[in-house]
């Protein structure tokens, strides 16, 4: 019906959320003990009170909170998220370099988890007490209880020395590596272990979710109607049941994008994947607050965009959602 209006509303709402993230960022920075001036001075090896005061004045740190906030928002609006003291580079530049590898990792893991998870769940739903179904229950337990970085470390130990068929570090073979199609292959090769590590947790989760949802749907009246038409079991399952059964999967994919990002931070650090997570870890080691806050902002942005897309996908799958109702 009013899809454009609904989308416009969602986008407007997303902008407000982003503004809120910025305010939170700034407030956290402001509340934390110590300030940029001390950091700068600390870097250059101690200094007098006069120097601290001068730096504070230069950076506008002596202004009242709301004025500092407005200055901050003004800079952000111009795309300036500050300067990374350690990397000596604008934060935005740093983040854009690392954003693509992270998205590659996160999106492929989510894709694999959803596609395979849904299929496993669908087959398991047909035999709720069968072997596959029990396997999913066990996998879901493991997926919940295993620390994701620890699983990754175990894979590194396994593949670094015992079965060295997959690289355990980095995203490519460096300057000596291949180019063109060979490069794509190289990246895929490097991606294997990180993606396996990250997707396994969610694979278990989505197979369990889609199994439950599929079992619900298979008991629905319209499935009986579909069978009464004489449709084959494949069409009943994959046309009539599946589309209804994936709705909760879509909802959760949107809700979990943030958690997936968290998992990616850990997995990137295990496999030295050159993404935002590794950058975040480096900024922790260097106490590089502007960079860390920039990462927080951009990952929130990605999560918001992901939520908009899931919302859109949900509308495409389920015709009942036509108004501006939220997902």
């Amino acid at each position: 019906m009013n899809l454009p209006i609904a989308i416009a509303r969602r986008v407007g709402y997303a902008l407000i959320l982003l503004l809120a993230v910025l305010v939170l960022n700034f407030t956290l920075l402001h509340l934390a003990p110590g300030d940029i001036a001390e950091t700068i001075v600390g870097e250059s090896g101690g200094a007098s009170k006069e120097m601290l005061a001068k730096i504070r004045k230069d950076y506008g740190l002596d202004l009242p909170f709301h004025e500092q906030l407005l200055n901050y928002l003004d800079r952000v609006a111009q795309g300036d998220f500050g300067h990374s003291l350690f990397f000596d580079q604008p934060v935005t530049e740093l983040i854009f370099e690392k954003l693509v590898p992270t998205l590659l990792l996160v999106i492929s893991s989510l894709f694999i988890a959803i596609v395979f998870g849904t299929f496993l769940g669908v087959f398991a739903a047909r035999r709720p007490s069968g072997l596959l179904s029990q396997l999913i229950t066990v996998l879901a337990l493991l997926g919940y209880a295993l620390p994701v970085f620890w699983t990754g470390i175990m894979l590194v130990i396994l593949f670094a020395s015992l079965i060295p068929i997959f690289p355990t570090s980095g995203m490519d073979s460096g300057p000596l590596g291949a180019s063109g199609v060979g490069y794509i292959w190289e990246v895929l090769h490097h991606m294997t272990l990180p993606v396996v590590t990250l997707s396994t947790i969610y694979l278990a989760f989505y197979s369990r979710l889609s199994r439950a949802s599929m079992m619900d749907v298979l008991g629905a009246d319209y499935i009986r109607t579909a069978r009464a038409k004489g449709l084959s079991e494949q069409i009943v399952i994959f046309k009539h049941a599946l589309r209804n059964a994936v709705l909760p999967v879509v909802t959760f994919a949107g809700l979990q994008f943030g958690a997936l990002f968290s998992g990616a931070v850990l997995v990137e650090n295990v496999f030295s994947w050159p993404g935002l997570g590794t950058l975040a870890f480096e900024s922790i080691l260097r106490r590089d607050t502007p960079t860390l806050l920039g990462i927080l902002f951009f990952s929130a942005l990605v999560v918001i965009i992901a939520n908009l897309l899931t919302d859109l996908a949900y509308r495409l799958i389920d015709p009942r959602i036509k108004t501006g109702a939220k997902a």
Partner: peptide, 26 residues
């Protein structure tokens, strides 16, 4: 053969019209 018969030679309508149609198809 039973599937050929179902919906073609013998068909059925159910008690619950509210839930007997698939919500996601026209």
């Amino acid at each position: 053969r039973r599937r050929e018969v179902r919906g073609n030679d013998v068909s059925m309508i159910f008690q619950e019209p509210m839930t007997s149609l698939n919500p996601v198809y026209t």
